[in-house]
Design a protein around this nucleic acid. Structure first.
Lengths: 217, 217
DNA sequence: GATAGTGGATAGTGCCGGTATCTATTACGG
DNA sequence: CCGTAATAGATACCGGCACTATCCACTATC
């Protein structure tokens, strides 16, 4: 198909498709003449993946380029792709190691070893966690750490379900892509569920309705 | 204290503090003369909260302004603040209701009623969830919905722990702020934990180490 | 052979979170 | 009482990002 049809099928404007190609998110179409290239379903699928990662997953274009490059790497070291997909967070690049962050890092290391997780504390996620805990401490909510075990338990459940899904549901061919999808979109799914559950829990605790009559605007 | 000291204590540059005041995130200091204002610990705390919401929570300045306005509202309708804190997601404003989204919406409504959640399906979180599921469907992962129950279970655990923490740990005075902190920073915490758990789960499944020797760059 | 569509390239747009600069004023140390 | 530093407030500007507009030379198609 030509670029116009690709655009129509996916709802992505033609100039945007060109932009994605320039940025390395999408392979160029195969040239059939100097100003004609043909695109196939792989382009269509990749385009949908890009939009999902952008719109639902909130990833940045450059991050998507990195992750997709890892996906396309024939070597496909699964845990590296997973890392690339997961390490897209952490707005603050490094973060000076103040007292709170150092203490939080210790807490995180303790949690990891206590749960026997096969994850090194140098993992970027551990860093993000430490920074979040440090921020909580600075706000006088250091005891939020009491919830860590509950959180970790739930996170384990979710992660196991994710990986099991990928393992049994996805052909080896698409496994890497499946991991990316599960990691990024799964996060969006869980986030939304958590917010819904919050509404429910607060309704039960404080008697506030999810949406009182006529409060839908 | 004066603005310079506030800046030193929090690490936020003076012009940035002025910017936050302009944007309504931070109340202005009390004027003691035409070019002097005094700030107190409430400003300091608020400033830390703003930075946490920005850096760790990934919220936008305008969103923070909304949420903090709700926090400062003497009426303090708790569930509304929670909503304001939670509804900060969803990059795509509305989203045309295509076939996939409509189907996903039905799935979400089913889930909510099945779990007996006191949350209306018109909730923005339900919308985000539907959009995430629709994106998964478009990518050929409609069966990801099989994980919804597991996800929901975990989300319930986390939400209950969150609210219980707020309920018993926070004076009524600060409860609203506590909800915001728990909602936003709790999400960052859980997200990081989920990524760590992913690393662990994939290590167990596929034998990839969290960080192989000399792979820490 | 007119028209619409295309690949490729460059420049521009709108938003966002600040940062720089400027003025008029005041606090503060000596 | 004077010089310097800091401050409030206002406006202009900046860099990053995700596009979007425009242009050109060319070609598929009617």
């Amino acid at each position: 198909m030509r670029i116009g049809e690709l655009s129509r099928k996916t709802g992505v404007p033609v100039p945007t498709i060109k932009y994605y190609v320039r940025e390395g998110l999408l392979p160029a179409g195969e040239l059939t003449s100097r100003n004609q290239a043909s695109y196939d379903e792989t382009h269509e699928r990749r385009l949908r993946l890009i939009r999902a990662l952008l719109d639902v997953g909130g990833m940045k274009v450059a991050e998507i380029a990195d992750v997709l490059a890892a996906v396309d790497d024939p070597e496909r070291p699964l845990h590296k792709v997973l890392g690339a997909a997961a390490d897209r967070m952490g707005g603050t690049p490094a973060g000076h190691d103040d007292a709170e962050t150092a203490a939080a890092r210790t807490t995180v290391a303790g949690l990891i070893s206590r749960r026997g997780w096969h994850a090194h504390e140098s993992n970027p996620a551990a860093d993000d966690l430490a920074r979040a805990l440090a921020a909580l401490t600075r706000l006088g909510h250091g005891s939020f750490a009491e919830l860590l075990e509950t959180y970790a338990e739930a996170a384990e459940q979710v992660a196991q379900a994710d990986l099991a899904y990928v393992d049994r549901r996805v052909a080896l061919e698409d496994m890497v892509e499946g991991v990316v999808i599960g990691t990024v979109l799964g996060e969006a799914v869980f986030s939304a569920l958590r917010r819904l559950a919050h509404v429910d829990a607060s309704a039960r605790l404080y008697g506030a309705e999810g949406v009182p009559e006529g409060d839908k605007g």
